[in-house]
Design a protein around this nucleic acid. Structure first.
Lengths: 147, 147
DNA sequence: ACCAACTATATGTTATTAACATATAGTTGT
DNA sequence: ACAACTATATGTTAATAACATATAGTTGGT
């Protein structure tokens, strides 16, 4: 997910060493940061309309007003896994021009999984608020000004 | 984090195979689920008051009204890493009875990191809401009933 | 005196997930 | 002819939680 602003770690600097290429190193993310997003985003896009992978990525950006951008590689990986698990079906599209497309759509189980994700996301929202509030409460200054 | 309710995956069942022990297998979580929680929770507890590890775990439960329970092993690991990175200092406590205690407290940089986490958690809260709303919008039934 | 429960710290391991990187290949527009 | 877009896909690194297990010192109940 490409959200605004990084989350560098100081003061000891980023823990990952620079790559051998000698350029400023990038850093792998891991879902631990903001939590899993690609799967629910994919489900939301598929609920809107069945589509091929590349289009789904654009649909995700559309239905979240540009707030969520998913990694193409990760999206295809998630779609494959969802199909393996029975939440999605896909087939190569006939005709058309350009590179071969694979059309995806949700199964009934996929719609149920989407419901599960609503619950999970509301829970994540709630716990994020609880923790942010706990942190904020401890950093209030005596005169009420916040840091 | 031990939150209410699991998040099993169907219909193909859990992907992890049962352990060789032949008992119902547990499953490792990974931060991808709800996102990182142990570090901000530890920082919130330390902002409330410097304390030893075991007490911090209880403080976390206290300041989140029992909503957040962190794994003890993970908490000690995070405390050590935060110390390695300069956000926390610790020292063995003198005197007292029972097992040896290690007292932790935040550094100035640790307080800054706590500020960073407020920002990050608000962002997570916001994005969780956006995604949950996107999913909910697609599952509304024509007569307005929600699934 | 014995033992369960609590206190207290710590490492090993498995699993989930995102991000960065790179690859191949077919159109389209300049 | 070539850059940019379209479209799919795998390799790899890194972040993080959860489960498991270990060691060791009190305390309280029987």
């Amino acid at each position: 997910m490409k959200t605004a602003g990084g989350f560098g770690r100081g003061p000891a600097g980023n823990r990952s060493a620079a790559h051998g290429a000698g350029r400023p190193c990038c850093r792998r993310g891991g879902g631990g940061g903001l939590g899993a997003f690609v799967e629910p985003a994919a489900l939301a896009a598929l609920l809107a309309k069945p589509a091929h992978g590349y289009d789904l990525r654009k649909e995700i950006s559309l239905i979240t007003d540009g707030q969520v951008e998913v990694d193409a590689g990760g999206l295809y990986r998630v779609l494959r896994r969802l199909e393996d698990e029975g939440f999605v079906t896909s087939a190569w599209a006939e005709g058309g021009t350009g590179p071969q497309r694979r059309d995806y759509q949700l199964t009934a189980e996929g719609r149920e999984l989407a419901q599960d994700w609503i619950t999970r996301l509301r829970e994540r929202e709630r716990l994020s608020r609880i923790l942010a509030d706990a942190l904020s409460a401890q950093t209030e200054e005596p005169d009420g000004r916040n840091g």
